[in-house]
Simulated scan of single mutants.
Amino acid sequence: MALSDADVQKQIKHMMAFIEQEANEKAEEIDAKAEEEFNIEKGRLVQTQRLKIMEYYEKKEKQIEQQKKIQMSNLMNQARLKVLKARDDMIADLLNDARQRLANVARDPSRYAALMDGLVLQGFYQLLEPKVTIRCRKQDVGIVQAAVQKNISIYKAAVKNNLEVRIDQDNFLSPEISGGIELYNADGKIKVANTLESRLELIAQHMMPEIPVALFGANQNRKFMD
């Protein structure tokens, strides 16, 4: 039995509706799949960027922490240098004060005469030469002559050798010297400096390790002692 035109149109419409429904369902499925893939990719990208950002700021935090440590170390070193300089300045001031007080030694005749005896005899022993030239301040010639006369016999008895001593009155020590003497061998090539200033310097060098301890106490960070 042949279909009428109306039936054919009805079937066509039915088929078109079915196709359209299938197409819509497929489109919705594609949209859902695309949205799901989009969300997955978006999540992946967000997570990747999040990790990159976290890594970036972790690196920045480490850099800042390192810079803080370096800056703190620099500040501590600067503070340590300032403390050391202040200590050195204080020690230098003490030595300068001691140098200024040296002049007082020569103003006490009995004290200065006893000191000169020791400087002369020590100079003899340091040179151990048969001929010695002594230089002193112009105002000390008399006290040096007395010290020489007193100590020549002591020296000769100790070393069993003769000793000829000359006081150089053509070349006196500078008036700026606080006192003491300089001794030379016969040709002037060997010198013993026994001025008050040179003795102070020698004592200061010998006691330099002890001076900071006496002034500031022992260094707690020092592991080894000489």
Rank of each mutant, 00 (worst) to 15 (best):
Asn74Ala: 07
Ile154Gln: 12
Tyr125Asp: 07
Ile181Val: 11
Gly180Trp: 00
Arg107Ile: 04
Leu200Ser: 00
Ile152Asn: 02
Ser73Lys: 05
Ala157Gly: 13
Asp108Lys: 01
Lys33Gly: 11
Ala113His: 04
Gln145Thr: 07
Gln66Ala: 10
Val105Tyr: 01
Val8Trp: 00
Gln126Asn: 02
Met207Phe: 15
Ala34Tyr: 02
Gly217Asn: 07
Ala2Phe: 03
Leu75Thr: 06
Asn24Trp: 13
Ala17Val: 12
Asn161Gln: 15
Ile91Thr: 02
Met207Glu: 14
Asn151Gly: 10
Ser4Gln: 06
Met207Pro: 11
Gln71Pro: 03
Val165Gly: 04
Gln11Asp: 06
Ala6Trp: 02
Gln49Lys: 12
Lys62Leu: 11
Ile211Val: 14
Asp170Arg: 14
Ala157Gln: 15
Asn96Asp: 11
Ala17Thr: 14
Asn151Arg: 12
Asn185Leu: 08
Leu128Val: 04
Ala204Ser: 11
Lys59His: 14
Met225Leu: 10
Tyr184Cys: 09
Gln49Leu: 15
Ala23Asp: 13
Asp140Lys: 00
Arg80Ile: 13
Cys136Gly: 01
Glu176Ile: 08
Val8Gly: 00
Ile154Leu: 15
Arg87Trp: 08
Lys191Met: 05
Arg50Leu: 15
Glu35Phe: 09
Gln21Met: 14
Asn162Val: 05
Glu55Asp: 15
Gly179Pro: 01
Gln63Val: 10
Asn162Thr: 08
Val192Arg: 01
Gln139Leu: 02
Ile19Gln: 10
Gln205Pro: 00
